[in-house]
Amino acid sequence: MHPKSGANGTAITNFILPGLVETPELQLVVFVLFFCAYMATVGGNLSILAAALVEPKLHTPMYFFLGNLSVLDVVCISVTIPSMLSCLLSHKCTVPYKACLTQLFFFYLLAGMDCFVLTAMAYDRFLAICQPLTYSTCMSQTVQRILVAISWACSFANALTHTVAISTLNFCGPNVINHFYCDLPQLFQLSCSSTQLNELLLFGVGFIMAGTPMALIFFSYAYVAAVVLQIRSVKGRKKTFSTCGSHLTVVSIFYGTGIFNYMCLGSATLSDNDKAVGIFNTVINPMLNPIIYSFRNLDVQDALWRVIMGRWSLT
Rank of each mutant, 00 (worst) to 15 (best):
N273G: 04
P18H: 06
Y38I: 10
P56S: 00
Q103D: 10
L53H: 04
S242G: 03
D272I: 05
C36M: 15
L85Q: 09
Q144W: 02
L187V: 14
L17C: 14
K238W: 02
V250E: 05
I231V: 12
V277L: 07
V205M: 08
Y255H: 09
S136K: 12
F105W: 04
T10M: 07
R237D: 05
F254M: 12
S78E: 03
M139Y: 00
S246Y: 07
C100Q: 04
V32H: 02
A165H: 12
F116W: 13
F219A: 05
V300F: 07
G206T: 11
S191C: 09
H2N: 02
F180L: 04
A120G: 05
E22W: 07
S191P: 03
A225I: 09
A159H: 03
C264A: 06
I166W: 13
K57N: 08
K4F: 01
R125G: 07
D114A: 15
N198I: 03
P290W: 09
S313D: 02
S194A: 15
I217M: 09
V30E: 02
A225N: 02
T161P: 06
T137V: 13
P24M: 10
C192R: 05
K239L: 13
I77H: 04
L109G: 05
L89M: 13
I177R: 05
A120W: 00
F295G: 01
K238D: 04
I150E: 10
T41A: 14
F180Q: 00
V54I: 08
M62P: 04
I166E: 02
A40Y: 08
V79G: 00
N45L: 12
I279S: 02
S294C: 09
L127N: 00
A7M: 09
V250W: 00
Q131C: 11
C76F: 15
C182I: 14
C172Q: 04
G278D: 01
L202C: 11
G9H: 04
P24K: 10
T240N: 13
V283S: 00
S233G: 10
Y63S: 09
S90R: 13
Y293S: 05
I308L: 15
L184T: 14
I259H: 01
F219M: 07
E22K: 13
G256H: 00
L28A: 12
V95M: 12
T282P: 00
S246H: 13
H247I: 15
S191Q: 08
F219C: 08
G211K: 11
I217N: 04
S313E: 06
Q186H: 12
T315E: 07
L216A: 03
T23V: 15
L33Y: 02
T119M: 12
L127Y: 00
G112H: 04
A120V: 03
M263D: 00
V42H: 11
P18T: 14
G278K: 00
Q189V: 13
A222F: 01
I259A: 06
F203R: 07
L33C: 10
T212A: 15
L26N: 12
S86H: 11
F107N: 10
A222C: 01
L109R: 11
L110C: 03
I231D: 05
S70F: 11
T119P: 03
S242P: 06
I129Q: 08
V143E: 01
P286C: 14
G43I: 15
S151Q: 11
V251Q: 08
L201I: 14
Q301G: 04
C76G: 14
K239I: 09
F280Q: 01
D302C: 08
S136F: 07
V234M: 03
P185T: 08
S313A: 01
P96K: 09
